[in-house]
Amino acid sequence: MSEHAAPLLRPPRHRVDPRARAWWRVQALLTLSGPMLLTALVMAALSVLFFPGALPWLGPLLLVVLVLPAVAYLVVMPRMRYAVHAWELGERAVYAAGGWFWQKRRIAPLSRVQTVDTVRGPIQRRYGLATVTVTTASTAGDIKIAGLSDADAEALSRRIGEVAQDVPGDAA
């Protein structure tokens, strides 16, 4: 190993589309934050209607256990994701960064690329976003770039297709 100046992995060059933040927020609302807030609301309402005596301790409990985590997730997750998510198509490899709590950077050489899928979910379509998944022969090598703008996704998948054809393949 050349130890004189250990190289570092720099982040990918291109950020994802800014609209991705809105998409992630809606996703958070639908999957985690929304149900949590709804549960808190229903419990608080039930308590007010039927057990007013429980409110002094139930209120703070709901606030700490349900409301604050839900709001924090809703606010923090999209921001952190936007700060982390990035992608880059190099000459010989494709590079993507993702995640927010656990952050992942994955690099796969174009010579190993097998397929390029572009997926647009119902919420993504509203924001004009797409997810590009590049698969390799190994399931641990699949690269997923979420939150690209439609145009970027199309260009990227086309370019990966072109480049992958040029690079001598050993898609074993």
């Binding site: 100046a5 570092l8 010989r92 050489p109």
Partner: peptide, 19 residues
Amino acid sequence: AGFAATAAPGILDEFLTRP
């Protein structure tokens, strides 16, 4: 990064920087 680059050259070379 240095270990990964040395172990399997050609994958992440273009994304490396010197500190």
